[in-house]
Structures are given as C-alpha cells and as structure tokens.
C-alpha cells in the first residue's frame, strides 16, 4: 500500500480491512443488482426467509463437518425450491408458504445451534456480520460467486425484466418462466451466502431490498433504477464498513443503517 494512500485511508493498512472492503464492494454491487428484481417481483419476504434459512444450513454444516457457507447455500436452495414448489402446487398463498418455511427453518437453526457447545461466538458473527472473520478464502469465494451471479444477471437482464414485468407475455414468447424462477432463486441463495460473513443473516435481505427501494424513489426508467441501486449498494457497503472500523460497531447493522439513510434522502427527493 503506498504511504500517501495509507495516510489518507489509514484502515487500508490492515489486511482484514482490505479483505472486508473487497468483499463489501462485491456484495454491495451484487445485492443491489439482484435487489432490483427482488423488489420488482415483490419477493422481499421470500429473500428474508431464505436468508434466515441459512442459519440452519450453517448449523448443519458444523454438525456434519462441511464448510458452513457451502452448507448454507445448499440448505437455502432446498428451502427456496420447497417454497416455490408448494406455492405452485397448493392453494396456499405464497406469503403463507414462506411464513411456514421461514419459522420452521429458523427454529431448526436455533435448535441445532443450541445443541453445539462453544459455537455461540462464531454464531454471532454469522448473525450480524463480522469483518474480522473474513478470510482470504472467503474473499476469493465471494468474488468468484459474485462474478458468476452478476454475469447471469446482466447477460439475461432483458429476460428477467420481462418476467418481472408480465409473466404471461414472457411465456407466450417462449420464455420458460418456471425454469427461470428456479434459476433466479439459485442466484438469490448464492447472493445470500456470499453476504453472510459481512452483513450477516439477519440483515442481508436489507442490503438486497433497501438500495433498490431507494433507487425506485427517484428513478425515471429501468436503466437509471439499476445504476442508482448499485450506487446505493456500493456506497452503503463501503462506507458502512469504514464506519464500523471507526465506531467499533458490527459491520452488518452499520452498512444497513447507511443504506437506510440513503433511502430517507431519496424519499425526500422522490418523484411525485
């Protein structure tokens, strides 16, 4: 790190902060991008539910000796597919189905964690995010997964917008809407997993929802909506991490409070 940069941004001296900021940039970008589709499709509750399901995934990973993050990805995928399958194949409304899975998987997670001795400190870092816990492997994993998800999201953005805009129109054009529902959920589960260590289970859906919501207050069209959402996501993640360094606060809540601040600003400036 050049001296002048370190003088200006002293926290960059620490490798853990470098790693955290890299991951922060990646997840700020990623959550804000997927968040645009999540909010357009009114899937905020769904994304919150699968984020909370990650807790049980982490606990199962610990019990069976699998790395917690991949275990969380697998478990959230199972929950996501379960919710979608039941919504399509029963008369129950989607928020009822989500509610059942949400509470069920959260209860399972807490129960499993309780059975593990001496795991509680680690648990807290998964719940609220802990930048000290971000390892070099986490950085590589986060950047790799973020790149993968972003590629699909941008290569297929027209298709995803079309499905969000009107499913029937998309289907008549030959789009396999149900297949894309499952692909989208997989991307969302991966996004949650990537964000676990920095933002934490409880608040990851905030970083998905709030930047898109803030952008929607002021955006005149879809392109601007996407750009502003990404801007809010990245600014929140990076300045939240720096804030948590100086204020000695958990990173997740700090990031989310910055994004909420930006939401309030955009609400004040909203298009009427």
């Amino acid at each position: 790190m050049p001296d002048s940069v370190v003088q200006l941004l002293p926290f960059l001296e620490y490798p853990f902060m470098q790693r955290a900021l890299l991951v922060g940039l990646a997840i700020g970008f990623l959550c804000a991008t997927i968040g645009v589709y999540v909010t357009l499709r009114s899937m905020a509750f769904f994304s919150d539910a699968i984020a909370h399901a990650a807790l049980a995934g982490i606990a199962l990973g610990v019990i069976f000796g699998i790395a917690p993050v991949p275990a969380a990805v697998l478990f959230t995928l199972v929950i996501a597919v379960g919710i979608t399958y039941l919504t399509f194949h029963t008369e129950l409304s989607s928020d009822t189905v989500i509610g059942v899975f949400f509470s069920g998987s959260l209860a399972l997670g807490v129960l499993l964690i309780g059975m593990q001795e001496g795991y509680q400190t680690d648990l807290l870092s998964y719940l609220f995010g802990d930048i000290l816990a971000v390892t070099r492997l986490d950085v590589l994993l986060a950047l790799g997964l973020a790149a993968l998800v972003m590629t699909v999201l941008f290569m297929r953005s027209g298709l995803l917008v079309k499905i969000a805009f009107n499913r029937d129109l998309a289907a008549v054009e030959g789009v396999r809407v149900v297949t894309w529902d499952y692909i989208f959920m997989t991307l969302l589960a991966l996004t949650v997993a990537v964000s676990l260590k920095t933002v934490g289970i409880i608040l990851v859906s905030a970083l998905i929802i709030v930047p898109a919501a803030a952008a929607r207050n002021v955006a005149p069209n879809f392109r601007v909506l996407m750009l502003l959402s990404i801007l809010v996501g990245v600014v929140s993640a990076v300045s939240g991490l720096i804030g948590s360094y100086y204020l000695n606060t958990p990173s997740g809540p700090t990031i989310v409070l910055v994004s909420i601040g930006l939401f309030v600003l955009s609400f004040a400036a909203r298009r009427r």
Binding site: V161, F165, D168, R216
Partner: peptide, 21 residues
C-alpha cells in the same frame, strides 16, 4: 392480454418495454 398485471410504479419506459421484445 386483457389487463396488464404489472406494478404501476415499476419505473420502466415504453421504449424499454418494447425493447424487451
């Protein structure tokens, strides 16, 4: 379709919708 089931606050222009096709 008879009614377009979409969110009226969805920030998307006529140009962008037609571009989707």
């Amino acid at each position: 379709p008879q009614r377009l089931d979409f969110d009226r606050t969805f920030p998307i222009t006529v140009y962008e919708v037609l571009l989707l096709k």
